[in-house]
Design a protein around this nucleic acid. Sequence first.
DNA 1: GCCTGTGAATGTGTTCACAGCG
DNA 2: CGCTGTGAACACATTCACAGGC
Lengths: 206, 206
Amino acid sequence: MRYHKIADETIRRMPIYLRGLMALSQEGHQHISSNKLADHLGIAHWQIRKDFSYFGEFGTPGVGYQPEVLLEQIRKILRLNCNHKVVIIGAGNLGSAIMAYPGFHHYGFQIVVAFDSDPKKIGKTICGIPVKDAAAVHTIKRRKIQMGIIAVPPAAAQQSADALVKADIRGILNFSSSYINVPKRVKLIDIDIAMDLARLPYYVSA
Amino acid sequence: MRYHKIADETIRRMPIYLRGLMALSQEGHQHISSNKLADHLGIAHWQIRKDFSYFGEFGTPGVGYQPEVLLEQIRKILRLNCNHKVVIIGAGNLGSAIMAYPGFHHYGFQIVVAFDSDPKKIGKTICGIPVKDAAAVHTIKRRKIQMGIIAVPPAAAQQSADALVKADIRGILNFSSSYINVPKRVKLIDIDIAMDLARLPYYVSA
DNA sequence: GCCTGTGAATGTGTTCACAGCG
DNA sequence: CGCTGTGAACACATTCACAGGC
C-alpha cells in the first residue's frame, strides 16, 4: 500500500474490476491475466495493472492474478469486506426500482429502510423494505448507518439531504436531478439519467 | 465556434448548465452571471466560462448571459433543439421506472416503444408506451430512431445491444450491469448504479 | 515467451490571473 | 467596478516501453 493520493478515476474503475473478477471467478479460472480481464471489461490492460499498482503487488509475473486473492484485496480497498446498511428516501417509481434492484447484494449492500412523505405508502413494505414517514429520518441515527440514497423529486432533494446529514450519514447517492449542498465531510455522488441521455445526441449526430 | 476537439468533460457538463439555466430562467432573471450559475450548480465560475468559450462568445462583459439565448445555444450544441425518439429494451422494474421518469421530456426525448421477452408483458402499455416482443426490435429500422436504452439483466445485454446495432441505432444508454461490445460508430454510455454505490464506502470511511 | 509492475512521456482537463469590454 | 473570455501554468490521467520475474 502506497502513500500516494489515489486518483478518483482509479477508484471509479475498481468496482468494474470487481464485477469482472466475480464473473470470471465463477467460470472457475485459476489465474487471470490483465489481458484477459481487459478483454472482458473493455479497459486497456496496462490501465488495469497501473491501477492495481497504486495499492500493491497482487499478481505473479508470467502467470497472472489469482481471482480470489484479487477480489479480497479490492474488497478491502473499497471497504466492501463488510456489509453496509443503506437507507433510501423516496419510494416512488425510481425508489421502488432501486429497492428491487438485485445488483446491490453483490457488493454487500442492504437497504434496510425507506422513507416517504406520502401517507399512502407509509407503513407498507416494498420488496421487504419497510417504508416510514419522511419526518422520521432522524431515527436512523442510533443504527450506525453510513450511506443514504435520495430518490425524490428535485424540490424535495435538499431537505432530504439535510435530514440525512443531520442523521450523521457520511455518503449520499443522489438520484434527484438537482444540485444539493452538503458539508465537505459528506461524500456526494450524483446520478442523473436524463443528463446522461442528453449528451448522446451530440455524439450521435456528430 | 472553434475547431478544437471539444473535451468529453465539457460535453458532460453542458446538460448540467442546461438544467441550471432552465431553473433560473423560470425564476425570471434577465441576466445571469457565471458566478450566479456557479453557485446554483456547484461548479467553479471559471470552469463554466471556459466551457462556453470553446463554442463561442455568448455573454456580455460586465452584464452576464441572457438565459434564453444561452439555453438556445446549448440546445443547438447538444443537438437537443429537435425532439428525439428513443426505444427501450427491458420492461422490468428498472425499465418501467425509466419509462415513468418525467425528466426526459425537459430535453426533448420521447420513449416511443419498449421491448421485452416476457409474454406476460408483450401487448400491454406502460405509461402509455406499448411493449412489444423483443424479437421485433428490427422493426424500428424504418422509424429513424437514433437512440436506445438497455435495461435488461446482464445475460441478455449483449444480444439486446446487437439487435439495436442491427436496427441502425447510433447511441446506447446501457443500464445492464455488464460490458457490451458495439462498433465504434455507436456511442455507448454505461450506467451502473450498484457500482456508483460501491465506491462510496471508500470515501466514507477514509 | 508470457506476464507483472513502473518510470517516463504524452495527452487531457482544471485553475489561475488578467486583459479588455460594458 | 463587475463581468466575460482566454492564454499560460498547473494538476491529473493515460499510454508507452521496457526491466525483471516466472
